[in-house]
Design a protein around this nucleic acid. Structure first.
Length: 295
DNA sequence: TATGCGTGGAC
DNA sequence: TGTCCAAGCAT
């Protein structure tokens, strides 16, 4: 651990106390049943809480267990996903539900290693489910936690583009030994990053560790280094795919190819994107060559 | 390790 | 208006 790291016990006490008082009431937090936590984590990958809330409630109403989702088609999952974005997540959640039924007797596994083997579950999601749903001790490193540690410990505005070894070591060294406390710590540090230590305008006045924060002590130096490149959007395949998926998702029946022209006029790109959507399993063709969601 | 992958709100 | 950002994953 770097020499400038604040006293760990003090960080723990302050952030855990702050969390006890300020934690948001969230449906997957108030009732952290494992399937609910798993669904929420898939939906929250790159998608804000406020947009997830209504879709989450409808999803759990319809599919209260992995077995229920596994018994539906992947296309039903894609349609229910609505406009959350990155619809391949819906496909992966469906595939994960099938795997849970086949390999885990319908119960969401509780170990990081088993979770990691599920489709759509990477390092973060495996750690989050193990920690939030099962109370396990796991290093939960999401964008919020990474930003909090980058600022408080390293004294920089933003973490590096990718997780590096040293960063994981710092996070591991800060994780409380006690299992239940470690799980609270994971939720607390995420919450602090999501609500107070935000990317754009951090609310240092409301931060329980502002006086221990290295970034604040240094005068909030701005990000130094290569510019953080935003994702291109206009005219990209992602935009095209989104338009095409919206047409099929919101149609009442099969969609004739001609109807996709209105969604994207440039033929070569449209056809390339249709092919990629078919390849991904997000679209399918019926007997008449019309587009449908997979059955 | 760098890209590609949706969507919409905030500024 | 354009840019940035949001509980990442797979390749």
């Amino acid at each position: 651990m770097p020499a400038h790291t604040p006293p760990v016990s003090e960080l723990h006490r302050r952030i855990l106390d702050w969390f006890d008082e300020h934690r948001r009431a969230l449906p997957w937090r108030d009732d952290p049943e494992p399937w609910r936590v798993m669904v929420s984590e898939f939906m929250l990958q790159q998608t804000p809480v406020v947009r997830v809330l209504p879709v989450f409630e409808a999803w759990l109403e319809r599919w209260p267990t992995p077995a229920a989702l596994a018994a539906s088609s992947s296309g039903d999952a894609v349609r229910a996903w609505g406009r959350l974005g990155y619809p391949r997540r819906a496909l992966r959640l469906h595939a994960a539900a099938v795997a849970i039924v086949e390999r885990h007797d319908g119960r969401v596994p509780d170990s990081y290693d088993e979770l990691l083997l599920l489709p759509g579950v990477g390092d973060y999601t495996a750690a989050a489910i193990a920690s939030f749903a099962h109370g396990r001790r796991a290093v939960v490193l999401d964008t919020n936690v990474r930003r909090v540690f980058a600022r408080v410990v390293e004294g920089v505005q933003y973490p590096a583009a990718g997780v590096v070894r040293a960063e994981r070591d710092v996070a591991a060294s800060l994780l409380p030994d006690d299992e239940a406390t470690a799980a609270r710590w994971a939720a607390a540090t995420m919450e602090l990053g999501a609500v107070v230590c935000t990317a754009r305008s951090p609310q240092c006045d409301a931060c329980p560790v502002s006086d221990l924060c290295r970034w604040r002590a240094l005068g909030h130096p701005e990000h130094d280094g290569p510019p953080r490149r935003g994702q291109a959007w206009h005219g990209t395949d992602r935009q095209c795919r989104g338009r095409l998926m919206a047409v099929v998702r919101e149609a009442h029946g099969p969609v004739a190819p001609e109807l996709l022209v209105a969604a994207w006029s440039e033929a070569a790109q449209r056809e390339r994107c249709v092919d990629s959507l078919l390849d991904d399993g997000l679209l399918d063709l019926d007997a008449e060559g019309r587009f449908i969601l997979p059955g």
